[in-house]
């Protein structure tokens, strides 16, 4: 009992009653104030455009006009009967699913390779990140040349090797254009996923791995029964990122094919740009852009719950 007041006197002498409290002392003000710039930034650059897009999707707004005519769900109902929209929606889902499956297979494989000890491992890890770090516009320009229908370096190489009897018109045929787009998506996304999986692997307790080895579990048994279950939360996060990035990506498709040939490779983002900005049909463009939002929201919630459950389970 007696030590309390003594300690108070020694460690924290009471401030004089006239002491002026400045902003730096008032955390209830300082905290929000320090957060404000980031908050304003997000509200102005994400929140406002987002709300504006929702409002536009219920209007017949056109570029070159600031008039706002409420049309209810007309833009959405019109889209539901638009074959080009159906195709774009299908492409968005197809590109997303196929690329994510490939990304995860490649990422888990690469993570296991990079987890092993070998000479030059650090260099390989750094190089692996290059596709992720490279500006997408720059990278896509390189891929445009790699897959150019007339001058494709892939074609020329295959020709020289005697492996290509005809010619592959990468961007001129919908199937090949799809392959090209998915290739670039995978190339971009898999380094990021690899890094995440690598981080997850380093978090797996060494004794569990060693116990599996001692118990005589082979590589695939360890992979499917030890590593992957324990990696599930982190893999889910990587997939979630990948899904969101791929489903909302505009630049890869636009820079590679601009939605061609004959609108066959449009995704929702590029169709929205074509209809809303180039075609001056802002209302319809906004409706296209927002169409996937509920789907992505549900996917995100489900995946985060899965990840949480897996985490709790571990």
């Amino acid at each position: 009992m007696s030590s309390g007041p003594q300690a108070q006197v020694t460690l924290a002498p009471p401030a004089p009653v006239f002491a002026r409290r400045t902003l730096a002392d008032r955390e209830s003000v300082l905290g929000p104030l320090m957060l404000a710039p980031a908050l304003v930034y997000v509200i102005l650059l994400v929140g406002v455009p987002f709300v504006l897009a929702i409002l536009l999707s219920f209007s017949s707004a056109t570029a070159g006009s600031l008039d706002f005519n409420w049309v209810g769900l007309r833009n959405f109902t019109r889209l539901l009967s638009d074959p080009q929209f159906h195709r774009s929606l299908g492409n968005t889902l197809r590109f997303m699913l196929v690329s994510q499956v490939l990304v995860m297979v490649l990422a888990v494989t690469a993570a296991h390779v990079l987890d092993a000890a070998f000479v030059g491992k650090r260099l390989v890890r750094s190089l692996l990140l290059l596709p992720w770090a490279a500006p997408v516009a720059l990278a896509s320009m390189a891929w445009v040349w790699i897959f150019d229908s007339t001058f494709s370096v892939v074609n020329w190489t295959l020709k020289v090797l005697g492996l290509l009897p005809g010619w592959l018109y990468w961007f001129g045929e919908p199937g090949l254009a799809t392959v090209a787009i998915i290739t670039v998506h995978v190339w971009r996304m898999f380094p990021f996923a690899t890094v995440i999986v690598l981080a997850g692997m380093s978090a797996i307790p060494q004794d569990i791995r060693e116990a599996a080895v001692v118990d005589g579990a082979g590589f695939f048994r360890r992979l499917f029964h030890v590593n992957l279950p324990m990696l599930l939360p982190v893999v889910t996060v990587a997939v979630l990122f990948g899904v969101v990035f791929t489903a909302t990506d505009f630049s890869v498709v636009w820079l590679l094919t601009r939605g061609g040939p004959y609108n066959s490779t449009h995704v929702l983002a590029t169709l929205a740009f074509q209809r809303g900005i180039l075609g001056a049909n802002l209302g319809e463009g906004a409706a296209v852009a927002l169409f996937l939002l509920p789907v992505l929201l549900v996917a995100a919630v489900v995946m985060l719950r899965l990840a949480r459950r897996a985490e709790v389970g571990t």
Partner: peptide, 8 residues
Amino acid sequence: NPAVLSWN
């Protein structure tokens, strides 16, 4: 040939 379907 199909290259012309993809020209910029």
